[in-house]
């Protein structure tokens, strides 16, 4: 074992500290840009919406990153599960009888969407991905096809137009003031949900036996296999958890964004950017990168709205961010060599 490299603790902590420093500097830089261009109220709103976007990206990317780390499968259908979560929310809202309190509907939709996402994820993994275990590239290609198919099915059932956002519980359907600007409480709720999930997944990874197996598997799946642990089963579990979290994310976003067939692809692209910046298989990387990308996008959006009257820079900025990171560090901010 002594001849295997790269995982020696000293090296990891050193690199980690460096990556954290870069990330912190980046956030400070964004903050400075914000303060230079906008009044304080706008800055607060930009930061909060950056956080809220970042949390949504995180919910899509978290599963992708861990799944990729375990068996090198990049699930390009993850965005579709996000979208399905939103539509499941609508279905549950509609299915509950008239007169059900909104809060009950909302909670039911959250739980239902999560379960539905997990269930479908399980079916996809067992029926479609498992047979292709021996051909990793084809698994990725398959998920790309799956994403198209899911989007089309949704389009068949619900039509190409989007659905208007569903109604959140009254307590969340308000705004509050920050430095003189208004911010929706619901977006704050998204931030809280995202943060809670971020922490609980982190706890799962750090404190539980399953988490230790997952982390070991991400480091070296062959070694874990050699210890007599069935990595395939762990993989299925992680895949299901990932899709469930993505679906939960979609449902959480539904009262704000509504639901539309292309939202999957949209969020998938940004999630890809997030995990590439974060270093593909690093959980910390994904968590931090999603916030960085969220903040970058929010800042760029505000800038381009102010100067060009179109949000174009939001998408472009994330892409440019990714390209720069790849050029400077070809394995992402938190990636291993």
């Amino acid at each position: 074992m002594t001849t295997t490299f790269d995982s020696s603790p000293a090296l990891r902590t050193g690199a980690l500290r460096q990556s954290l420093l870069i990330s912190a500097l980046f956030v400070v830089g964004l903050l400075v840009i914000n303060l230079l261009f906008f009044p304080v109220g706008t800055v607060a709103v930009v930061l909060l919406s950056g956080l809220y976007q970042g949390m949504l990206f995180f919910l899509v990317a978290a599963g992708m990153s861990i799944v990729f780390g375990l068996l090198d499968v990049l699930n390009l259908a993850q965005g579709s599960f996000f979208m399905l979560g939103a539509y499941a929310g609508f279905a549950i809202y509609g299915a509950l009888p008239e007169g059900t309190p909104t809060t009950v509907r909302f909670v039911a939709a959250l739980v239902g969407a999560t379960l539905a996402g997990g269930l479908l994820g399980g079916v996809v993994e067992i029926a479609l991905l498992r047979p292709l275990y021996v051909r990793p590239i084809f698994q990725i290609v398959l998920t790309l096809g799956l994403a198209t198919a899911i989007e089309e099915i949704v389009r068949e059932i619900y039509g190409p137009a989007g659905l208007i956002p569903i109604e959140p519980p009254a307590a969340l359907d308000t705004t509050f003031g920050v430095f003189g600007a208004q911010f929706e409480t619901y977006r704050l709720f998204i931030i809280v949900v995202g943060f809670l999930l971020m922490v609980s997944v982190s706890l799962l990874l750090q404190r539980t036996r399953l988490g230790i197996i997952i982390r070991a598997g991400v480091q070296d799946s062959e070694m874990v296999e050699a210890l007599g642990i069935n990595v395939r089963r762990v993989f299925t579990l992680v895949f299901v958890l990932g899709t469930a979290v993505a679906a939960l994310g979609g449902m959480t976003a539904a009262p704000f964004l509504g639901a539309y067939p292309t939202m999957g692809t949209q969020f998938l692209l940004t999630a890809i950017i997030v995990i590439v910046i974060g270093g593909m298989s690093s959980y910390e990387g994904t968590a931090i990168a999603s916030i960085l990308v969220g903040l970058t996008r929010a800042t760029a959006e505000q800038l381009s709205l102010q100067y060009f009257n179109t949000p174009i820079l939001a998408s472009v900025s994330a892409l440019v961010f990714m390209v720069i990171v790849l050029l400077v560090r070809p394995t992402g901010l938190f990636g291993r060599e």
């Binding site: 002594t2 001849t3 490299f5 790269d6 020696s8 603790p9 000293a10 090296l11 990891r12 050193g14």
Partner: peptide, 11 residues
Amino acid sequence: GLSRYFGGLKA
């Protein structure tokens, strides 16, 4: 004097 270190490990 050929040396290669991996972090703290002098391989």
